[in-house]
Computed example of a mutant assay.
Amino acid sequence: MRALIIVDMLNDFVDGLLANPRAHSIIAPLGRLLKHARANGWVVVFSNDAHQEGDPELRVWGAHAMAGSPGADVIPQLAPLDGEIVSPKRAYGAFDFTGLDEQLRERGVDEVVVAGQHTHICVRHTSYGALIRGYNITVARDAVCCFEGVNEDDALGYLKMAYAAHVTTVDELAGAPAAAPA
């Protein structure tokens, strides 16, 4: 069973306090992947920063995606549906102190498809968490992004080398989009 884990596609990371201009380029492919996952019965997870005062990450990035704030909400284009897992996190990795592993195991998941932000930080830490818990890892290269100035190919190469992640595309996972009528 596959699970799609969408990491940090939040208001604060797309257009808010820590906006990443590259995030806009992955919204459409992520939307296609999400639609495919839902249509094919994958477990869908939204792993979202939801910080509280005193979280160690705030020392690095300042206040962002504070629990209960609009900045910690998933962007409207990818809004979770009832029954999907919304997993708040207080550190980089989706599996760190969140109970996500137990929720996935209950649903028979053995492979995670990781997408979202940021390839070199939260996607990386989520992939590590998946590896040490025994999940197979797939990353759709066109549904993840780094910060400006960080080499995406290097970040993806690290996931392949260190975590045996299968790096592919949304088209390969979901099938090529239908051609527009002539």
Rank of each mutant, 00 (worst) to 15 (best):
L58C: 02
L58M: 10
L58P: 02
R59H: 10
G62N: 08
A63T: 03
H64T: 06
A67P: 05
A67Q: 07
A67H: 06
A67R: 07
A67I: 13
S69T: 15
S69H: 03
S69L: 09
P70Q: 08
A72M: 08
D73C: 04
P76K: 15
Q77E: 15
L78Y: 12
L78I: 12
L81N: 08
L81T: 07
E84Q: 13
E84R: 13
I85T: 03
P88V: 04
P88Q: 00
K89M: 05
K89R: 12
R90F: 09
R90D: 02
Y92K: 08
G93P: 00
A94P: 10
F95V: 01
D96H: 14
D96N: 13
D96A: 14
D96L: 11
D96W: 10
D96C: 13
F97R: 14
T98Q: 06
L100Q: 01
D101R: 13
D101T: 01
E102V: 09
L104K: 07
L104P: 15
E106S: 11
R107N: 05
R107Y: 04
G108R: 14
G108H: 12
V109D: 02
D110L: 01
E111L: 04
E111P: 00
E111Y: 03
V112P: 00
V113R: 03
V114F: 00
A115G: 00
A115S: 11
G116R: 03
Q117M: 11
Q117L: 14
H118F: 10
I121D: 09
I121K: 08
C122E: 07
V123L: 15
T126D: 03
S127G: 13
Y128D: 04
G129W: 08
I132D: 12
R133E: 02
R133Q: 04
G134C: 10
G134S: 07
Y135E: 04
N136Q: 14
T138Q: 05
V139E: 00
R141C: 00
D142I: 01
V144Q: 09
C145S: 09
C145L: 01
C146P: 00
F147N: 10
F147E: 14
E148I: 04
E148Q: 12
E148V: 12
E148H: 09
V150E: 08
N151I: 12
E152N: 06
D154T: 09
D154S: 05
D154Q: 11
D154N: 07
A155V: 08
L156F: 03
L156W: 01
L156N: 05
G157P: 02
L159P: 01
K160Q: 15
Y163G: 01
Y163D: 00
Y163T: 02
A164F: 15
A165Q: 11
H166D: 06
H166C: 11
V167D: 02
V167H: 10
